[in-house]
Nucleic acid binder design. Structure first.
Length: 516
RNA sequence: GGCCCUAUCGACUAGUUGGUUAGGUCGCAACUCUCUCAAGGUUGAAACACGAGUUCGAAUCUCGUUGGGGCUACCA
């Protein structure tokens, strides 16, 4: 079997959305499992919508996820522009392949599969508005093209003159009339469409003298020897055109197989997931943070504290499952078990809670060493006076209660800074006259405790409290309040062990002094 | 409007050759553990969109309806 070659082909019109990352991921998994190549190609044939920085954003996003292209991007993370052994099909940016497409577009005209059209955008707009007024719609097709300005209707000399004189003309594909195109999709099975419902799509644009997606895409997939096209469902309606193009070029033998992925839907309401949903519902829709030209910041999974492994896992399970009950998969494991047959056909709704759960699962799987490093990266200054062992003990105490590393400080900051104030409702509830007499006795008892370890503290303290009939809850909750300033948190004995005897006694006496 | 795709708990989904108490995960609830809050453990509520048809028997096959999604640009 020949080598599998798949591609991810985003257009640089802004930040890559998580749905795009999922498409890239599925392509990557498919390629890696088959021992094939994953290619990145930049489809920048729309000069008007180009957004600076989006190409770099795509590459950085994929890199963060560990979805690294085999072809199209060099070791420095740049799109390859000149062919070499590893990147034989360069350039991988379509704007730099313009000369290639022109030839193929004209080939289609000469074989009668396409024609020059001279209608201006304004003329076509007018026709659309006119049709709209009559509650119908204008379509450039077998029916209407006979009455429009193109090389099919105009005399040959007129066409010659226009091609020579006029700067603007487009090339349109001549969709055959009343034929059934039989297609196959790896996920959806057989699909049939009658060509009479299709329109004569523009293949070559007059406005920026570049091919449209349809032409560039087919030519590049052919030239780059792509074997499977795994892309979003929004392309399904143009699949018949793409089939027809392969046929018109005589490339049917080399036509890739297609797989159309369902779209990611809004968590609530209607429609597909969009940029705005993230801000509205409080979760990121982009892998990495993005700042647009107006300075507006969109959240990114990376900056919001998601681990890339978790993000990849979340994406993989949005529209695919392994068929068993395992939910946590590394990239390597996903490569092993992924299959297009198990991709779900209907759209998947993103769920923020489940995404957080995934991150929590990955957080729990991290070693203390890794978490200490991540914690330091986030809270460097506040932790600088403490060594890794101390921070490690703190992390181990609270890691089970966190979804994200950025929650660590709130969960265990009291181990690094003595409380500045005491939760008023806790004070109100616990700091009563009887306990005021008990706490100094407890402090005195702790002074002589050796070793000052969680188990010893727990056991002895419990004995003391029970013997004196003080009440476990009352004493322990008060101690927690005095030690950390709050009435909730980890076990008191565990907190004491990490703080150490000296600090514990200091905090208790400070608290007594402060609270009176 | 037209064309195409799609339809199982609130969400993600299993259920690939028709026969299951329709399973799992997130979330939710209760109980439990417990010095608090989490976490953990146990349990529970929760779904085959609807209508025909085929069949002894349909979540599963067929048709229709309805819902959802996409496309309908000289955007991708």
């Amino acid at each position: 079997m020949k080598q599998r070659r798949v591609r991810f082909a985003p257009s640089p019109t802004g930040p890559l959305h998580m749905g795009g990352v999922r498409t890239a991921l599925y392509n990557y998994l498919y390629a890696k499992q088959a021992g094939g190549k994953f290619i990145l190609r930049i489809e920048d044939t729309d000069s008007h919508r180009f957004v600076p920085g989006s190409e770099e954003y795509v590459i950085e996003s994929l890199h963060w996820c560990g979805i690294v292209p085999d072809e199209g991007v060099d070791k420095d993370g740049k799109i390859v522009e000149t062919p070499c052994a590893e990147h034989p099909h360069a350039p991988y940016r379509q704007s730099q392949r313009k000369h290639i497409y022109r030839k193929y577009a004209e080939q289609l005209v000469s074989t009668g599969n396409a024609y020059y059209a001279f209608d201006t955008p304004e003329e076509l707009d007018a026709l659309r508005k006119e049709a709209e007024a009559k509650k119908s719609s204008f379509t450039y097709n077998y029916h209407s093209r006979t009455s429009l300005k193109n090389s099919l209707t105009l005399p040959a000399e007129d066409v010659e003159r226009r091609l020579a004189q006029e700067s603007g003309w487009t090339i349109r594909f001549k969709i055959p009339e009343n034929r059934v195109v039989k297609m196959n999709d790896l996920i959806r099975g057989d699909i049939e469409v009658n060509t009479s419902t299709l329109d004569d799509k523009v293949l070559w644009k007059r406005t920026d003298e570049l091919p449209t997606y349809h032409l560039a895409n087919i030519v590049d997939d052919y030239l780059m020897e792509i074997t499977e096209v795994i892309r979003g469902e929004e392309w399904l309606p143009s699949l018949p055109l793409h089939y027809l193009l392969y046929e018109a070029f005589g490339w049917e033998e080399n036509r890739p197989q297609f797989a159309h992925l369902s779209l990611l839907l809004k968590p609530d309401g209607k429609g597909k997931l969009s940029k705005r949903d993230g801000d509205r519902l409080g979760f990121p829709v982009f892998p990495l943070q993005w700042t647009n030209e107006d300075g507006e910041i969109s959240h990114g999974y990376r900056e919001d504290g998601y681990f890339p492994e978790a993000f990849v896992n979340i994406l993989a399970f949005l529209g695919w499952n392994p068929g068993n009950e395992q939910e946590i998969f590394t990239l390597e494991e996903l490569i092993e078990v992924f299959s297009l047959e198990r991709v779900v056909k209907s759209g998947a709704r993103f769920n923020h809670d489940k995404a957080k759960w995934y991150n929590q699962e990955y957080l729990r799987r991290k070693s203390t060493k890794e978490l200490v490093k991540a914690f330091r990266a986030l809270e460097g200054e506040r932790l600088s006076a403490f060594d890794d062992n101390y921070i490690g003990a703190a992390v181990e105490l609270i890691k089970e209660r966190a979804y994200f590393v950025h929650e660590f400080w709130n969960l265990c900051g009291f181990l690094f800074e003595a409380p500045q104030e005491y939760d008023p409702s806790g004070v109100n509830k616990f700091w009563k006259d009887d306990i005021k007499g008990i706490i100094p006795q407890v402090a005195h008892f702790l002074e002589n405790m050796e070793p000052f370890s969680s188990n010893v503290i727990e056991e002895n303290l419990e004995n003391l409290i029970i013997t004196r009939s003080w009440g476990m809850g009352k004493v322990m909750n008060t101690l927690r309040l005095l030690l950390v300033g709050r009435s909730s948190g980890p076990g008191v004995a565990d907190i004491m062990e990490i703080l150490g005897k000296k600090e514990v006694l200091r905090r208790i006496s400070n608290a007594i002094a402060r609270l009176g």
